[in-house]
């Protein structure tokens, strides 16, 4: 009985090591960009940049945002990351397939909205159930991929939605 218990314990530990690591390949605070797109960093034209907490704060303090509604939303945001790179149709389909699988397995992100047309795909992801901690958008159109992510403690989706009505 004891031996069986030890075997079960070892099995459970090895399971956690094998799958737990993959699930948490990034840190908890990582963005959508870090979680799923750093593997493409060596691809030609890959270009990522980040607006850190200090820069967001400085722009907030300077009241630099061009619209009061944007300023309100940016008070809820800590960091912003984005990347862009040219993509081929073949790469796009395999990348999307892989992304879908990873997001499903990872379970940190929920697909909030997906729009697919003949020439473009746009997907919005959110992280957090009660409080939205991140909004990420993946766009592929006419041979170009962009991924952007806004990270905060509590991002109000309704404020973001209302933005284009209030401008």
């Amino acid at each position: 009985m004891k031996a069986q218990f030890i075997i079960l314990l070892l099995l459970s530990l090895s399971f956690n090591l094998a799958f737990g690591q993959e699930r948490n390949s990034g840190k908890a605070d990582d963005s959508f960009v870090d979680a799923y797109f750093t593997t493409y960093a060596k691809m030609p034209g890959y270009d990522a940049q980040m607006m850190g907490e200090a820069m967001v704060k400085r722009l907030n303090d300077k009241e630099a945002w061009k619209h009061p509604s944007i300023a309100r939303i940016m008070k809820q945001v800590k960091t912003y990351k984005n990347l862009s790179m040219p993509v081929t149709p073949e790469f796009t389909s395999s990348m999307l397939e892989q992304l879908d699988q990873q997001v499903k397995k990872d379970r940190r992100y929920d697909q909030y909205y997906r729009k697919v047309t003949a020439n473009s795909t746009v997907i919005i992801y959110t992280r957090g159930k009660q409080l939205i901690k991140e909004i990420a958008v993946v766009s592929i159109a006419w041979g170009h991929l962009t991924v952007s992510s806004f990270i905060g403690d509590q991002i109000d989706l309704e404020s973001v939605r209302a933005l284009s009505e209030n401008r």
């Binding site: 944007i70 919005i124 909004i135 958008v137 009505e165």
Partner: peptide
Amino acid sequence: EALLQQNVEADLMRISNLLNQAD
């Protein structure tokens, strides 16, 4: 900063438009 800021503003507006489209 200005370049990044414009990206942020454009992205927020884009997400907003998409959320409205979704609704």
